[in-house]
Amino acid sequence: MSENLARQFLIREDVVFLNHGSFGACPRPVFAKYQEWQLELEGQPVEFLGRRLTDLLREPRIALAAELGTTQDNIVGLTNATTGLNIVAQSLDLKPGDQILTTDHEYSALEKTWAYVCRKTGAEIVVVKVPLPLLTEAQFTDTIITGMTDRTKVLFLSHITSPTALLFPIERSIAEARKRGIWSVIDGAHTPGHIKLDLDALGADFYAGNCHKWMMSPKGSAFLHARPEVQGLLNPLVISHGWTAESKQPGARGAFGNSPFIDEIEIQGTRDPAPWLTVTAALDYRRDNDWDSVQAHCQALAQDTARRLGELTGLAPISAPEFCAPQMVAMPIPDCDTDQLKLDLYDKYSIEIPVFKWQDTCICRLSVQGYNSKPQMDLLLEALTDLLGLNAAANRRTA
C-alpha cells in the first residue's frame, strides 16, 4: 500500500521523509487542484477576488464544518493555526493578575504568543507539569483542574502536543472550565485529519487547527472555530474590507453578508485563497483512498517502530498507547547531542526527522503517513543503532 501511495506524493525519492507532522505533504491530485485554483485566479484576478471570492470561500467552509462536527457559521479559514490562536489571545479582555493556565507541553510559538499578551495586559501564565508517563485520563484531568483558581481566565491546551506527540484527553478539562467561567482555547494544529473531531460536542470556546498537516491540503490552509456565544469577543488582527463599525452590535452582519466573525477574519486584503479553496479536494482525496484504513496501517507502523526502538534503548515510552497521537510518536533516545544526531541522520542516511531535547529527555519524533513504509522504519532503526551505539548499550545491559 505505501509504495503505491508514495507515488501519489511529491516527496523527493532521495529523502526518507519521516516528518509529516511539521508541515505535512500534499498528494499530487490535491496539489494539481491547488494549481488549478491559482491559474484560474490569474486568468481574471478582478473577477476572482473582487466578485467571486466570498461565494468561493463558502464551499470549503461547508465541507470542512461537516467533517469537523460543526456548522459553517462557526468556522473561518486562515493561513495557519498560529494565526487563529493569536486572534483569540490578542482579543480576550485580560487584566493584571488574570491567569492563563497551560501545560509544559505547548508549542513554542504559542508560548511566545501568551508571553506577548501578558506583557501587554499584565496577565500571568501558570504552567502545570503533566505527569509522565501519561497513563490515565484522570492523571491528566486532575492535574489541570488542580491548577485552576479564581484568577484563572483562560485554559490553553494542545489537543495533540507538538514536542511530545501526546493526545491529551481534554474533554473533562474543557467542561470544568466552562462551569467556572474560564475561556477554553485549544491548539489543534496537529488534529484535523489525524483524529476524528466533533467540535460542537467538544465544547471548547475556541479551537484552531491546520488542514495542511494531516488533512494534506496545501500549505496555508487552516481554520478557527468559535462557539456562537463567544464569536463577538474576537477582533481581527488586520482591519480590512471585511470590518464594519457596527460589528459588535446585536445581530450585526459583516461587510460581505456573513457574520462579522467570518467577514472580518476571512476578508483581509489580497492573499492567495487557493490553499483554503483546495480543502474540499483534500477531503475528497481522503474519502477516495479509504484513508481510515491508511491511518490504521500508519498507526500500527508508528507504534511498532517505537516499540522496537524502546527494546534497543531500554527506555520506557512517555505514555500509554491511547494517549499517543495515532500517526506521530515521540520516542525517547539516550542522552546525546541532538543537533548533531539530526544532521547525521540526514547527511548519512537521508532521513528527515526531528531530533531535540525536551526538558531533560532526548526525543526522536516519528511521523508516519501513507507514503511511508516498513523498510523506511527499518532504516531509521538501523541508523539510530549505528549513530547512538545501541547494540553496544544493549550488550552492556544484558551482560
Rank of each mutant, 00 (worst) to 15 (best):
G370H: 08
T313V: 09
L10N: 04
R365A: 02
K248F: 11
L134N: 01
T70E: 02
N74Q: 15
L315K: 08
A89F: 04
G242I: 13
S173E: 12
A252L: 10
A189I: 00
T398Q: 03
P60G: 07
A165C: 12
D200W: 13
E264Y: 11
W358D: 05
M328A: 06
T102D: 13
T149R: 08
V126I: 13
V46Y: 15
F17E: 05
A204Y: 09
C336N: 05
L380P: 06
V46A: 14
G242L: 13
V368E: 00
F9N: 04
P321Y: 03
L384D: 06
N80L: 08
E246G: 02
L78C: 07
D386W: 11
Q8I: 01
K219R: 00
P228L: 04
R172A: 14
N86A: 08
P334N: 12
H297T: 01
P332V: 12
S240K: 15
R227W: 06
P96R: 08
L380V: 12
A65L: 00
L233K: 14
E42D: 14
T136M: 12
R271K: 15
R58E: 04
C298E: 08
W358R: 02
K112M: 11
I363D: 02
D284M: 04
M331T: 11
S91V: 00
Q8G: 08
K374A: 02
L41P: 06
R227T: 12
N74F: 10
A399M: 05
I265L: 15
L315W: 06
V117D: 10
T149L: 01
A393Q: 04
P96G: 11
P169Q: 06
Q99W: 14
T141R: 06
S247D: 14
P133Y: 07
L237P: 02
I11D: 10
P60D: 04
A204T: 15
F31L: 13
L18F: 01
C336F: 11
P317V: 01
K213E: 00
I11P: 02
V130E: 03
K248L: 10
E59F: 09
L49G: 10
E171K: 11
L381S: 10
F256M: 07
D14Q: 09
D290I: 09
N258H: 12
E264H: 07
R365Y: 00
K342C: 02
L387G: 09
L167G: 06
G220I: 01
A81K: 10
I363W: 01
A109Y: 00
R271A: 07
A281P: 08
Q8A: 06
N19H: 12
D142L: 03
D360W: 00
L135T: 15
H194S: 05
T113A: 08
A66F: 05
Q299G: 02
A81F: 10
T338P: 11
A63Q: 12
Q99R: 05
D378Q: 08
Y285Q: 00
T161G: 06
L132T: 09
F223Q: 04
F168Y: 15
E59I: 05
D386G: 05
A109F: 03
F156K: 09
S184G: 08
T244Q: 13
I262D: 01
Q35E: 13
R178M: 08
C211G: 02
I333F: 10
A6C: 02
T361Q: 07
G193S: 05
L388Q: 11
L101Q: 07
P45Q: 11
I144V: 01
P45S: 15
